[in-house]
Simulated scan of single mutants.
Amino acid sequence: MAQVTLGGNPSNTISDIPSVGHKAPDFNLVKTDMKEVSMSDYKGKNIILNIFPSVDTEVCAMSVREFNEKAGALDNTVVLCISKDLPFAQARFCGAEGIENAIPVSNFRNDSFGKDYGVELVDGGFKGLNARAVVVVNPEGEVVYNELVPEIGNEPNYEKALEAVK
Rank of each mutant, 00 (worst) to 15 (best):
G8Q: 06
E120R: 14
V79R: 11
K70F: 08
R92Y: 10
L80K: 11
F52Y: 15
L121E: 05
P25V: 07
V55E: 10
F52T: 02
M34H: 14
Y42S: 07
S54E: 13
N68D: 15
P53D: 10
G72P: 10
R92C: 01
E69C: 01
D16F: 10
N68C: 03
C81G: 13
K84E: 05
I82Y: 09
N46P: 06
N68A: 02
S15Y: 06
V59D: 08
H22P: 00
A71F: 03
A24H: 01
N28L: 00
E58G: 15
I14C: 08
C60I: 09
I82S: 12
T77K: 08
A91T: 05
L49M: 14
Q3I: 14
Y42L: 00
D56K: 12
N28A: 09
L74Q: 11
Q90G: 11
F108K: 09
D16Q: 14
A102F: 13
A61K: 08
I82F: 03
S11H: 01
D85T: 12
I14N: 07
A96H: 06
F67A: 02
I51S: 06
G114D: 13
M1R: 04
I99H: 01
N68K: 02
V55F: 12
S38D: 09
K70N: 03
S19Q: 14
G8N: 01
P25K: 08
G21K: 07
L86I: 11
G21F: 06
A24F: 09
M39E: 03
K70M: 09
P18V: 04
I103F: 09
L6H: 05
K31S: 08
F88L: 13
V64E: 12
G8F: 06
V30A: 05
S11I: 05
K45R: 10
K115G: 04
D75I: 04
A2K: 08
E100Y: 03
D123N: 15
K45T: 07
Y117I: 00
A24E: 06
A61H: 12
V30N: 08
I17L: 08
M34S: 11
L74A: 15
Q3V: 13
F93Y: 15
V59C: 12
T13W: 05
A102E: 12
D16Y: 14
A102W: 11
E36W: 07
A96T: 08
M1S: 04
N28W: 01
D33M: 10
S38K: 14
A24G: 06
D56E: 14
A24Q: 06
A61E: 11
I51W: 08
G72V: 09
A91F: 10
L121Y: 08
D75G: 12
L86S: 13
L121W: 07
A24C: 09
R92P: 04
L80N: 11
V122F: 13
S106H: 10
V105T: 07
G44I: 08
I17R: 05
F113I: 05
D85K: 14
